[in-house]
Every structure is written in C-alpha cells, then in structure tokens.
C-alpha cells in the first residue's frame, strides 16, 4: 500500500459523497461469486448430500441397517429429514468451515495481496464500513453454503422417498411443513456457526496479506479444537471451544420435542466468538497503516 490511505481519500476529492451501500454490497457479492474457487467449493458442497443419499440407498437396498455406526443415517434411507441434517452435520466438521474461511481470507488479505482493495479509494468508504461490507459477504457465503447442502439433501431425500416417513428419533411423524421448519432452523444455526468461523478468518485476514495463511490458521485452529474436544481430562476447556457442540447439537433437531439446550449454548458461543473476532478485526483495520 502506498502512503495514501483510505482515511485520507475523502479529503482529496472535492465533493465528499458516500458510495451507496447497496452498490457496495452487490459489488462485493459479484466479487465473491465470480471467483472460480468459490463456485467449485459450493458445487462440491451441493453434490455431497446427493452422494450420501444414493450410496446409503444402494448400500442398504432400502432396508434399515441395524448395526451401523451412524444411527442418524439408519433412518435416512426412509427419511427426507435426516439426510439434510446428517449432511450438514458431517460437512460442518471441515468442509463448510473451509468455504467461509476461504471467503474471509479473500475478503481482506486476498484482495490486499492483489491490490484490489485500492478500488475502495475511488468510492470513498470509511474503514468500519469496509469491514461491514466484508462481514456481509462472508455471511452470505455462510448462508448460501449451509442452505445449498440442506436444499440438495432435502431434494435427494424427497426424490428417493417422497414425503413418506418424515419421522423423528422419538418416533413421531412430522408434516412436511414442520420438517421444513426444522431444516430451516438447522440452516440458520449452521450459518451462525459458520459466520463465527468466518469472523475469525476476517480477524486474521486483517493482519496479513497472505490468504493461504488465513485458511491454514482457521482450519488448523478448528482441527486443534476438535482434537482437544476428544480428551475428557480437558472438559473444563470444552465450553470455550467453538466446534464442541457441532456433532451433538444437530441430532437434537430430530428429537420430539426439540431439545434446545445444546443448540442454544452453541448459538451463544458462536455469537461470543463473532463479537470477539469482529471487534479485534475492527480494531486492527482502523489502526492499520496503509
């Protein structure tokens, strides 16, 4: 970056006018969704539930498997509700965080490394607003990727089994509307978790010019957290780890009535991470030279 900073820019232009927010947001989305890597990751995310659905259907010949390691998928073969939720649960381990970590890495570190952030000089934008637009972009990626997985999972489940057998782990039958509501809740919850991951990625992103470093640090941190979560001796630490409820919370949406405890705790934890990461990112971005 040159000595001309974003902060100086408004003073240079003769007539100070702010770039319209809608235009900023839409151009941010164009940036994100035109990147081939974003599209490739989204496509892979979309295919995954289809692969699970077909392979479970073929592998079990439509008969319930009685001695599987994944009881959630035992009912998946007859259940268009379990397939989207199960896919979200499996992908939340690594692949979904990868998608948002990439978006967060590209948003600031990536654009800076290719000099694209200089474009913001032409449309004068204060730094807080810049961060706001970037958070919006990451949030959209989080919602789209979680929604895409749920959508293809739902469609696959409906194609294989129709609306029959939408029942919960408690053995109660659900109407399609009720099932859709639960899937929507799952998407919202997963998107919130992903947004927390994305916020951490943004915070790291403000400190470096190397997007690869951001992705590596975020995924490395996730893997370390998940490994730490395996040790009972560290149980005092577990409530502070973001991925702690990721495996256990989503099946709760398959119970009747829904058990909100783990989901609520997970949401509160994600919001805490979000607040910490965004405030650090803001602090870094307003004090950064150039």
């Amino acid at each position: 970056m040159t000595a001309t900073t974003w902060e100086d820019a408004p003073a240079v232009t003769t007539r100070r006018h702010r770039a319209p927010l809608a235009r900023l947001l839409s151009s941010e989305l164009r940036w994100i969704f035109r990147r081939p890597r974003t599209l490739v990751v989204l496509a892979l995310l979309a295919i995954f539930p289809v692969i699970i659905g077909i392979s479970v259907q073929l592998g079990t010949d439509g008969q319930p498997e009685t001695s599987g390691d994944a009881p959630l998928f035992v009912s998946a073969i007859t259940n268009a509700l379990a397939l989207p939720l199960g896919s979200l649960m499996m992908l939340l381990g690594l692949f979904l965080p990868l998608a948002v970590a990439m978006a967060g890495a590209d948003a600031i570190a990536g654009e800076q490394s290719v000099g694209a952030l200089r474009g913001w000089l032409l449309a004068p934008v204060v730094r807080g607003r810049l961060l706001g637009v970037k958070v919006f972009g990451v949030a959209v990626v989080a919602v789209v990727s979680a929604g895409l997985v749920a959508l293809t999972g739902l469609v696959t489940g409906l194609i294989i089994n129709g609306t029959d057998g939408l029942f919960t782990l408690s053995g109660t039958e659900l109407s399609l509307v009720d099932a859709l509501g639960r899937i929507g809740l799952a998407v919202a919850w997963v998107a919130l978790q992903l947004l927390a991951v994305g916020a951490v990625a943004l915070a790291i992103s403000t400190t470096t010019e190397h997007p690869m470093l951001v992705v590596a640090m975020v995924l490395g941190g996730l893997i370390v957290s998940q490994v730490l979560g395996l040790f009972d001796a560290l149980s005092w630490l577990h409530p502070f780890l973001l991925p702690d409820p990721w495996v256990s919370a989503l099946p709760d949406l398959l119970r009747d009535p829904i058990a909100y405890d783990t989901l609520g705790e997970g949401a509160l934890r994600a919001v805490s991470y979000l607040v910490i990461a965004l405030s650090l990112a803001y602090a870094r971005i307003v004090t950064r030279d150039g």
Binding site: F240, L274, V275, A277, L280
Partner: peptide, 12 residues
C-alpha cells in the same frame, strides 16, 4: 468486544 465475548463464553 473482547470483554463482551468472553463474558458470553463464561456464561456458557
């Protein structure tokens, strides 16, 4: 921000 977030985590 950090204080708020840490309070939230401690609550959990």
């Amino acid at each position: 921000g950090a204080a708020l977030g840490v309070t939230g985590l401690a609550l959990v």
